[in-house]
Design a protein around this nucleic acid. Sequence first.
RNA 1: GCGGUGGUAGUUCAGUUGGUUAGAAUGCCGCCCUGUCACGGCGGAGGUCGCGAGUUCGAGUCUCGUCCACCGCGCCA
Length: 706
Amino acid sequence: MAVTSARQRDQRSIAADTYQNITLFTHACEIASEYADHRGTDAIDSHFGAMLFEHIFDNVKQRLEFGCRGSQHHTDTPNLQIFIHSIPSLSFLLSILTKIKFVFAIIAPLTSTTEMALRTHYCTDINENNVGERVELAGWVNSYRDHGGIIFIDLRDKTGLIQLVCDPADNEKAHKVASQIRDEYVLIAKGTVRRRGEGLENPRLKTGKIEVVVDELVIENRSEPMPFTLGDPNVGEDIRLKYRYLDLRQKEMFETFQLRSKAAIAARNLLDKHGFLEVETPILTKSTPEGARDYLVPSREHVGEFYALPQSPQLFKQLLMVGGFDRYFQIAKCFRDEDLRADRQPEFTQIDVEMSFCTQEDVMKVAEELLHAIFAACGHEIEIPFNRITYRESMEKYGNDRPDLRFGLELVDVIDLFEDCESPIFAEIAKYPKINRIKALKVPGGDNAFSRKIIKELEGFVTRFGAKGLAYIQVKEDGLKGPILKFLSDEAIETMKSRLDLQIGDIVFFGAGDRKVVWDYMGRLRSEVARRLDMIDENRFEFVWVVDFPMFELEEGALHLKALHHPFTMPKNIDEEDAEAIESDAYDIVLNGIELGGGSIRIHKLDIQKRVFSLLGISDEEAEEKFGFLLDALKFGAPPHGGFALGFDRLMMLLTKKESIRDVIAFPKTQSATCLLTHAPSPVDEAQLKELGIRIRKQPKSDAAE
RNA sequence: GCGGUGGUAGUUCAGUUGGUUAGAAUGCCGCCCUGUCACGGCGGAGGUCGCGAGUUCGAGUCUCGUCCACCGCGCCA
């Protein structure tokens, strides 16, 4: 292998830097020019800089405080050059430009500016401008076509494909090596870039106009035949997970994780800019048995005692606020030993943020800016601030606290219309409008769309969630039809008609009973109907803040209260007699019906915290034992503080429109929480257990079957 | 813990009412082929039908159990 000289290295690195700078500059100009077009100006003239500046200034006033020294530029900057030079760095310019529909991801080149000994270019870096150049490439055999004489190889690296040509007439030795290759062999190829001949171009390849005539070919490593075909969309997920490292070779996979990286870096940059300090909190920590199950880690030094993996860095970030750090963030791994779902993994990542001396508004603003920056980094311009809805309104209109606002179909209260109705069941329900609900879901055009069979299916659907049945009214040309009509007075029917604005062809579903049950199944029905009628625009991002959460919830079948958010959330009205009427400074961010994250203002006063613990039925002794360190901390001048956390995996799942969170996690677990790649969890040596003072009481299922 | 769907060649799938030697495509191996890019042609290998019982003269097919994967319920302060 030829050793690259220091001079060559320098040249390459300069070339790469220049390339990057030129790319940035070019894109800045493009944006500028687009803006100029938009304003009706033909060319980028001397006014352009000022215009762009103003445009940016309008959009990102708050950012300019950080970077641009002084604001004197905004009226008299003569041109783009000066404007750009007035910015401290290109990356800062870039971050500003993201505000004007700018896609960070596109311009950050895949090419690294650092030296690589084994290649001069990535595959798709090569184009017609390189014709005649000698290049060195490294990668995998994506496919090969051996014609007996000439051999074509599609070489692949993370950037894409390029065609190598091995012609015995050009180089017999390279051709001989090429005749041995198979799919997924690792090659290092040297050769000359050549324009493809007339009619030989491949428009489907980015590098389809050129090819590399190989004169030196090294098989760096061989590969067994692949256990599955890369790029085949039908391959089972289990085999992909078993060979995840092969699965990751697929273009779509690389792009997903590239985007994930961009998003994480954008989050870091935004929070850094706002003065947040990134701090790592412990992974080995104390078990807090409330909430989800903990993953436990036995201690060797303290036989019989256990660490727990954190379900979230909640208490530590509060302690950082007591520690005076003022603003903290972390891209934190969290662990919950609960059953999995398509959007739930036992270990997951959240962007965790906490700040001191802040109001709920301050926290929400940071969260919005953060999401805006992340979406911008991924090529999406989202509107901030987000809409808000109270918890109560969300429950009443959408049946849950994470409404999907990509479609309408609001639930409408009709309990009053059943007060004097002739059905004893409905009348009884209507007697207690505080705890019961009768909700109507009008589906415009639903009568035409839903056959008797589909309605039966929908009834089966809601029955699974506690509905006794599914009453409905069809709006026909000759009037309303449906079994419940006979119970209602003409007046009630007329009121319903106008309240629901019924039109011919509509169908109205009714849910009646305990409010929690009705909310639940009617909310689910709402989504199910929207899905069936294809009412959901998959390309929309509908954010909403759900605010004013109740502090407590009466546990089903139990006497004591349960914290709806968590017990460290600041209650708004702790002295309220009816504990269920106590609200909290808690807020959730919901995107397209999925809870992306949430946060709250925390309790920073000892007496309030103690009061909340006691309402939750946690004794002083228990509180001391579990949260003593927090209670202690609150005694020493804890500042008012609050924060939020965003589920990063879910966020990436929504951003990449994947159906499963596993698609955005490099090495995910299966639904039974195992890793098909490493076979974790697995039994351990008796000696290891002995050292930990642990004896397994029950034989594993596979052995116990005997 | 519960409900649903699936498990047949390396992969993706078909397989009739229970009835000869379980098929296809692709991949793999061998030979041929100098402009392909889903290269092409000829030939070949490859299966404990997830596993275990049962019913039957006979089971990929029917029954029961079990394991694995996925979707959902419970659970996830």
